[in-house]
Amino acid sequence: MTTLTGVSSQSCTVRPLALADIRGRATITPAEASDLLGMGMQQTYTALKDGSLPSLRLSRRILVPVPALLRLLGEVTDDAD
């Protein structure tokens, strides 16, 4: 997933998701994690399944907790899980 900047679809630019975009959020989607990490979706779901990428399962929905992901990436976080 990418972040759109600009006013209209004709003048918008697409940029990759960055760490600054997820700070302050509790969770992100697997697609956002894939974009952030520069991984394909199949590789992302494999990492979620084998536990190398932290995840939460809420019913059928899979989410990636941002504080755990930031710790995995070596980023300092004050948030508690």
Rank of each mutant, 00 (worst) to 15 (best):
D78Y: 08
L63S: 10
T5K: 10
P54G: 01
Q43Y: 05
V76T: 15
P30S: 06
L17W: 03
S52T: 10
D50N: 08
A68T: 12
L63I: 04
R57I: 11
L4P: 04
T77V: 07
A68I: 09
Q10K: 10
P16E: 15
P67N: 00
G38N: 06
T3P: 05
M39G: 04
A47R: 13
P16G: 12
V64G: 01
R23T: 11
D21A: 07
G51D: 08
L72S: 03
A26I: 12
T29R: 07
L37E: 04
S52Y: 03
E75V: 12
R61M: 08
P30M: 03
Q42D: 14
T44K: 01
M39F: 08
L19A: 01
G51S: 05
T29D: 10
A26Y: 05
R60S: 05
T77F: 02
I22K: 02
D50Y: 02
D50A: 04
L19W: 08
Q43T: 14
S8N: 10
S8Y: 07
R57Q: 13
R57C: 09
G6D: 01
Q43H: 09
P16L: 13
T27F: 05
Q10W: 08
L73I: 01
D50H: 06
V76N: 11
R61H: 07
P65W: 01
L37S: 05
P30I: 02
V7I: 15
A18K: 12
L58P: 06
P54A: 00
E32F: 00
I28Q: 01
Y45P: 11
P65M: 00
A26V: 12
D21L: 05
T44M: 04
T13K: 11
E32W: 02
S59K: 06
A47H: 11
L58E: 10
S11P: 08
P65N: 00
D50P: 03
L53P: 04
L63Y: 04
Y45Q: 14
L48S: 06
L56W: 12
A20W: 07
A20L: 09
T77I: 00
L70P: 01
